[in-house]
């Protein structure tokens, strides 16, 4: 695995405000990375640092073996960026804008038709962007980020304003690029959406990186309980003995939920499977990204 992005001890200060405080991470090629955090946690600042739009106050940023803010643009040709709230000049048409950006990346303008088709804009490509809806502008933003088969794709809130069908197409495109060896960084608040897609999660809070790892690694780190939901038989005579001693929650009569710490999970499942006369069905819900996120934030707030 070759690293495409390396950050080392990166600090970015805006006057008295420290937007990013000593962040270090490495992103390998061919991975989808979720960058999550509150508004103002430093996500967008990190993206701008990787793009070389701003210089770090201290620390080192390397993108495709290049310092992105040094004024060398070789890396930027292989980089796609979709800013949050992407904006275009309203008086030009979608095709004209995409042709403009293709020229700046030295890409053949002939390739834009298929790109427009891919994001479902070919019908509207001759219309002025001023007439576009929010979702259409987002699609055009996506199209420009995909110009020139990028090796790194930095997407800030990419799926806002996309309808569910296009959202699926979007993740298909992202996966395709990942399979071709691209690093895809997704900044988002839609954690449930990222959960199934991201191979690595980086959690930011107030400029600090509080977690960095695969979802399983994070689950392991937090030791958060897995929820086990038992659907009881229609008319249970009595709860099994092992269950009565547990701390459980009961919903609408015949659903019972338990919190199982990682060490106890298998044991509980075996018990539940053994009580075939009272338990009809078992659901196992591992801690979601939402829960992990909240846990990491809380534990960081608690530590001064």
């Amino acid at each position: 695995m070759t690293a495409t992005v390396t950050l080392e001890g990166v600090v970015k200060r805006y006057g008295p405000v420290e937007a990013v405080r000593g962040v270090t991470f490495t992103l390998p090629a061919g991975e989808i990375v979720a960058l999550v955090g509150h508004n103002g946690a430093g996500k967008t600042t990190l993206l701008k640092l990787m793009l070389g739009l701003i210089r770090p106050t201290s620390g080192d940023v390397r993108v495709l073996d290049e310092n992105p803010s040094a004024g060398e643009f070789a890396a930027r040709k292989r980089l796609g960026y979709l800013p949050e709230n992407v904006a275009f000049n309203a008086s030009l048409t979608g095709r004209e804008v995409l042709a403009f950006y293709a020229r700046l990346k030295r890409q053949p303008v002939s390739g834009i038709a298929s790109l427009l088709d891919r994001v479902g804009l070919s019908g509207a490509s001759g219309r002025r962007i001023g007439t576009y809806s929010k979702g259409m502008r987002q699609r055009l933003g996506l199209a420009q980020a995909l110009l020139g088969a990028p090796r790194i794709l930095l997407l800030d809130e990419p799926t806002t304003g996309l309808d569910p069908a296009l959202r699926l197409t979007f993740y298909e495109i992202v996966r395709e690029l990942r399979d071709q060896g691209a690093t895809v960084v997704l900044c988002s608040h839609a954690l449930t959406e990222l959960e199934e897609r991201a191979e690595r999660v980086i959690i930011m809070n107030r400029g600090l990186m509080v977690a960095n790892g695969t979802l399983d690694e994070l689950r392991h780190l937090t030791q958060l309980p897995t929820r086990i939901r038992l659907h009881l038989a229609a008319k249970p005579t009595a709860l099994p003995d092992w269950l009565r001693s547990m701390n459980y929650r009961r919903f609408n009569g015949h659903v019972v939920e338990l919190d199982a710490s990682p060490g106890k999970k298998m044991e509980l499942l075996r018990w539940a499977a053994a009580s075939a006369d009272t338990v009809d069905d078992i659901d196992v819900v591992p801690p979601t990204l939402d829960e992990l996120y909240v846990h990491f934030l809380r534990s960081q707030e608690a530590a001064p």
Partner: peptide, 14 residues
Amino acid sequence: ERGTMLLLLSYPVG
């Protein structure tokens, strides 16, 4: 202000 500069400067242009 319109946000178009951010995108433009992320391209390989000085």
